[in-house]
Amino acid sequence: MLSRNKIELVKHSYKAVTAVRPELYEDFYTRLFVTAPDIRALFPGTARAQAVKLEAMMQLALSSLDTPEMLTPLLRKLGHDHATYGVEEKHYIVLGEVLLDTLAAQAGDLWTAEVSAAWFAVVNFIAATMIDGARAMAA
């Protein structure tokens, strides 16, 4: 799973970025829809509404990284639910890349190689677990 150091790097950098960049998630969706306009159809409603949902989910996920046994079932269900909306495995790659790019842009000098690697591990864990949930639905 994730090391204590990676978890702390992610939590610390997240707090630092969101404290000064409350528009983080709106920026993410703007970037996502420019990068992959075909994905826009998967997200009903406004980018602001989606940003609120993603922010709540990220806060929950990050606060639960220390207890993956509690987080994993939630992420699997979320993956299952997203599959019913038409989210495919390939979308997780784009979403992860755009999220990391958005965080890096918002973090500035705080975004070191070590912080980037920690976030990459967390995003991959979340995506892989959600994909597992979607695959379970299809089986």
Rank of each mutant, 00 (worst) to 15 (best):
H12I: 11
I7Y: 01
I39F: 15
L62Q: 04
D109E: 12
T72R: 12
A19H: 10
K6V: 03
L60N: 10
V17G: 06
E23Q: 15
V98L: 03
Q50L: 08
L24C: 07
I39G: 03
D109A: 13
V17P: 04
A138P: 01
R40D: 04
L54N: 09
P68T: 11
M70N: 14
I39Q: 12
H91D: 09
G86R: 05
W111V: 06
Q50E: 03
T129G: 02
V20E: 15
L32Q: 08
P68M: 05
L32E: 06
D81M: 08
A128S: 08
A128D: 14
L75N: 02
T46S: 15
A121T: 05
A61C: 05
M70I: 09
I93S: 10
M57F: 15
R40W: 04
P73H: 00
G108I: 02
T35W: 01
V34N: 08
D27P: 01
Y25R: 09
E114K: 12
V17F: 00
P68I: 09
K15Y: 14
Q50F: 06
A121M: 09
E88A: 14
L95N: 00
Y92N: 04
A41V: 14
G108N: 00
V87E: 11
D38L: 10
G79H: 07
D81H: 13
A127P: 00
L9E: 05
E26K: 13
P68R: 07
R135W: 13
E114V: 00
D101W: 04
M130V: 05
G108A: 02
E26R: 15
A127I: 00
F28D: 11
A107I: 00
S64N: 09
Y92M: 02
